[in-house]
Nucleic acid binder design. Structure first.
Lengths: 123, 123
DNA sequence: ACAGGCTGCTTACCAATCGTAAGTACGCAC
DNA sequence: GTGCGTACTTACGATTGGTAAGCAGCCTGT
């Protein structure tokens, strides 16, 4: 098996595999939240920023650019003033967002079970 | 609804919610790969390091400590020389790893579709 | 009329994080 | 007795991330 054959389908355990980059974008601190937010609806930049608590404009812009470059998010700019830009998921992005949301949902519902382990120093 | 009621079940869109920390640990660059590796088998430290291409000892140790503190990974140290430490998933960790693997599998199998978007500058 | 706000970014700067390399303690093989 | 293997920790430099300010032009308020 040649290297290119090995990487046609990704191999995350190999340091050199490009799938590592995709993983990095999708599981980045804000990438996860962007995908989940956009799963429900399309958003404008500032709207998305308000929906996701705590993102800086800088990081939101960067995250959206990553996801756009990976073909998960579609950016549509209307040339008006004030600027109007819409972000929505591509079909590929919808599939990705589903998986990410499953993970996020699990964390949200199981937070109590996880948090039990934090009480170590108390008691 | 009080703040504590709001956070008994996590709310990832709120900047102050502790679920953000868990998300950070599970979706960290190495956290994902650790969970997936440990899903199949228990591993010793160095063994895990070799299995996951490209991790430094420093980051592997830190990642394992995060996951241990969240109750996803169980660390068992045998007091022998040379040191022998085993890492395995807890039942909670198994559930988490399943979700993470679904995401990873999707990336690996859909890498070709994603990579198509990178050919923008070529051609 | 004219200051200030809103839009979607980008840039400059500083702090936190991460990776690399080395140190540690101890036993065993050569 | 030199060197390897184990599981880490620590020091330091490089990369990344967050904060704040800038930009360009219309709309609102006074």
């Amino acid at each position: 098996m040649t290297l290119s054959e090995k990487f046609r389908r990704g191999d995350l355990m190999s340091a050199a595999c490009p799938s590592r980059e995709v993983l990095k974008h999708m599981t980045s601190r804000w990438g996860v939240l962007v995908l989940i937010a956009l799963e429900g609806d399309s958003y404008r930049f500032s709207q998305l920023r308000r929906a996701i608590g705590g993102v800086s404009e800088r990081m939101l812009a960067q995250t959206l650019q990553w996801l756009e470059a990976d073909g998960l998010v579609l950016r549509t700019a209307y040339d008006v003033v004030p600027p109007h830009v819409e972000y929505r998921l591509t079909p590929l992005g919808v599939e990705a967002a589903e998986r990410v949301r499953l993970l996020a949902d699990w964390i949200e519902t199981n937070l109590p079970r996880i948090a039990e382990n934090w009480r170590g120093s108390v008691e």
